[in-house]
Design a protein around this nucleic acid. Structure first.
Length: 732
DNA sequence: AGGTTAGTAATTTTT
DNA sequence: TTACTAACCT
């Protein structure tokens, strides 16, 4: 380790000049702007190695932060390979895992003990409901999830209950949001628990208010590495800034063009402001892309150039073999035809030898996968849907976890409440209410209240409850001698929980029993119960058997960081993508985020990208017609090949009739108009307001507004719709 | 206490 | 269309 740095190190010679600069600039603040596919992970891990090889730091003196457990695991593996030993003692992990670790050491400074438990989102909501209920809030009028979102946003911004400024306040529940926030935080402390947001919030408070503690951490961490910096929220930024104050050696890697989580509290300003935040900061841009073909890069670059407020960065092909097919844009009549088109092309590609594991369908919203799933089933093409419910979020796993939590922490009211009547024991609202009342008035845990209430209960519930309480006493005793795995299995059997699913006739029941077996097995990988419980709270992920050759379907959000040979991007229609809802909420900023999402989608593809839009789509049971996404028009034509009737909308096309105000604001716009001129030029019999028309899906109606080729039509039967003029015929 | 039915709402979700 | 919740009945 102490060996002098070897001459031109071998691992450096494999890097391109900009990557090398990012690796070798070790001291001082550094922002690495890493475009998609430019070797970000390689830079991150090589930099870690370089820190060690140059003797600048010991492994334990480097703090490496990621967002996902997956990224943390990958980095850990690669670092372990570099240092030639298991990377166990390293400070490498997700923001939340690292904060949990720090908080365990200083818990008492924020009124917790070091054995605090971490709440999952389910528990958070139930607890908040109780708090609101106790405060007399009408939960129908003010649903708890709304307040939960407000509180989470506060926590994302590092705001503790006393510090809610009027500007940051919410009028939720008649201006009681901040009071309820305070009550919720009190309750969390009483239960010795922290929710996800608290992990960051508490640690930042500690570092802010206890200079001695902060100095300790400064002594420990000489170098800080941050991945996906564009996704950090304010409290994460505060945390990093506090920790970096000591040595100022902070290296943040990210891409402002891939910032797609603002709705989760991420502040793109963090990355945009980097140079101002950290004095004498350097910026290195990684722009050589080793992943995709030229047309794919050209299309992506042209699209993202429409965004304002970028740090600026243009991907260029880094490979010599980057020639390839143009990006295809296919327009179809309806969503069923779209699903057929995608299925057919995948089938065709497979016949040509394409590995299905390298094919993906990326959608804006989860529900869109359904029509593709149906299609793949009919065609017999194997697929997997990535995302959705994660292992530890399944009801049966949460129930089993709740049993174990009561075992480990009898005072865990939320867990006890969850399982007290699961399986059904005849203990309903009335019994639960009595327990709650007693627990609150005596200030004791629910389970203690339950013991006290036993004598006064009616025989039937009394017997059921006695059995459960004695069960816990017995299982807890077992824990000392039999080991946690045996106890867990016994507990699930004796409590009647497994029987509940064995008797369940629903088609999911067998799968749930399998999950429970897997759960007990996973438990065996941990030395003790509390280690396992921490893991499940922080590592909520699916372990995928990625071995099988299946095509993948997922949301664009879930696709960030992945790559495929062939990528389908369906549903590029106004309203769906960009999402109307987003734009209603966030305006121009939201539109830019949608555009970044489109950019992320296109840059997932190595060789083939197929974008499609459907003129008609069934949404919530009824047919809705839509027009192609503006993002289709924004693709540089020279990199795109259009199939079907998709055309750019005239508003953004140079023409004698519109002055195209958008061009004025956007200097870096595409020059060439050359789409399919033949198709759009002749429109002799333009439709006017008041014209009676017929539409294949909606029947007859009257035109009430005309916007170039888009018509607003009041249909006799189907209500008012916006459709393209080419789908209607004049009547009368 | 628990099951049934009617009404309503509906993105994205790294931890 | 579906999925979840809240009121309603047994």
């Amino acid at each position: 380790m102490n060996a002098p740095a070897p001459a031109p190190a071998d691992y450096l010679s494999r890097l391109n000049p900009e990557q090398r600069e990012a690796v070798e600039t070790l001291d001082g603040p550094l922002l690495v702007l890493a475009g998609a596919g430019t070797g970000k992970t390689r830079v991150l891990t090589t930099r870690f190695a370089h820190l060690l090889k140059t003797g600048k730091a010991w492994p334990g003196q480097v703090l490496s932060v990621t967002f996902t457990n997956k990224a943390a695991r990958e980095m850990r593996e690669r670092v372990a390979a570099i240092i030639g030993q298991p990377a166990d003692g390293l400070w490498l992990g997700t923001f939340h895992a690292l904060c949990a670790r720090m908080l365990r050491r200083h818990a008492e400074l924020v009124g917790l003990t070091s054995s605090f438990t971490i709440l999952d989102s389910d528990d958070q909501l139930r607890l908040l409901k109780q708090v609101m209920d106790a405060a007399g809030v009408d939960l129908k009028r003010w649903p708890a999830p709304g307040l939960m979102a407000v509180i989470q946003r506060w926590k994302d911004r590092g705001i503790v209950p006393g510090k809610v400024t009027p500007a940051e306040d919410s009028d939720y529940a008649n201006n009681r949001a901040h009071a309820l926030y305070a009550a919720y935080q009190d309750r969390l402390k009483q239960l010795n628990t922290a929710d996800f947001g608290d992990l960051m919030l508490h640690v930042v408070e500690i570092l802010k208010n206890h200079p001695d503690v902060l100095a300790d951490w400064h002594r420990r961490f000489r170098y800080i590495l941050v991945d996906e910096y564009q996704d950090t929220n304010l409290v994460q930024y505060y945390w990093l800034r506090l920790l970096a104050q000591g040595h100022k050696n902070i290296c943040c890697v990210g891409d402002d063009d891939q910032s797609i989580y603002s709705w989760r509290g991420a502040e793109i300003e963090n990355i945009l402001r980097f140079e101002k935040d950290f004095e004498n900061a350097r910026i290195v841009r990684l722009e050589a892309n080793y992943r995709s073909t030229k047309p794919i890069l050209g299309a992506a670059a042209g699209l993202i150039a429409r965004n304002t407020g970028r740090l600026g960065k243009t991907l260029r092909p880094g490979r010599h073999d980057a020639e390839g097919d143009k990006v295809r844009v296919v327009s179809l009549w309806d969503s069923e035809e779209e699903a057929r088109m995608v299925g057919d092309r995948i089938e065709q590609a497979r016949r040509a030898g394409q590995n299905l594991a390298e094919v993906a369908i990326l959608v804006r919203a989860g529900f869109q996968t359904r029509s593709f799933e149906e299609r793949m089933i009919t065609l017999g093409l194997p697929y997997r849907v990535v995302g959705g419910l994660r292992f530890y979020e399944r009801a049966e796993i949460r129930d089993a976890l709740a049993y174990l939590r009561v075992l480990a922490q009898p005072a865990d009211d939320l867990a006890f409440e969850r399982i007290v009547n699961t399986p059904k024991r005849g203990l309903g609202d009335t019994t639960l209410k009595a327990m709650h009342d007693l627990a609150r008035s005596e200030n004791i845990p629910l389970i203690a209240a339950a013991w006290q209430l036993l004598p006064s209960m009616r025989p039937k519930p009394r017997q059921a409850l006695t059995e459960l309480l004695q069960g816990f006493a017995r299982w807890r005793e077992m824990l000392g001698k039999d080991g946690h795995v045996v106890v867990a299995a016994t507990l699930l059997d004796e409590s009647g929980y497994t029987d509940m699913w064995k008797q369940d006739k629903s088609p999911e029941a067998p799968g749930r029993l399998d999950n429970l077996k897997e759960f007990v097995r996973a438990l065996g990988e941990f030395e003790n119960l509390s280690g396992f419980l921490d893991h499940t709270a922080l590592v909520m992920e699916n372990e995928e058997n990625a071995t099988a050759e299946k095509l993948s379907m997922m949301t664009l959000h879930a696709a960030k960081g992945l790559e495929f040979d062939m990528v389908f991007l369906p549903g590029w229609e106004e309203g769906l993508f960009p999402s109307q809802r987003s734009m209603d909420e966030g305006g121009e900023k939201a539109l830019e985020e949608e555009r970044r999402l489109a950019y992320v989608g296109i840059t997932r593809g190595r060789k083939h990208v197929i974008i499609s839009c459907a003129a008609n789509r069934r949404i919530y049971g009824n047919w809705t017609s839509s027009i192609p996404s503006r993002f289709i028009d924004e693709l540089p034509p020279e990199h795109v090949e259009v199939e079907g009737g998709a055309r750019p909308r005239a508003a953004e096309q140079p023409s004698m009739f519109n002055a195209a105000p958008m061009f004025a604001r956007r200097p870096r716009v595409i020059e060439a108009p050359a789409w399919d001129v033949k198709e759009r030029a002749p429109r002799p019999d333009a439709i006017k307001v008041g014209q009676r028309v017929f539409h294949m899906k909606f029947g007859n109606g009257n035109v009430i507004a005309v916007d170039d080729d888009k018509l607003d039509i009041e249909f006799d039967k189907a209500g008012t719709k916006r459709v393209l003029d080419r789908f209607v015929e004049k009547v009368g």
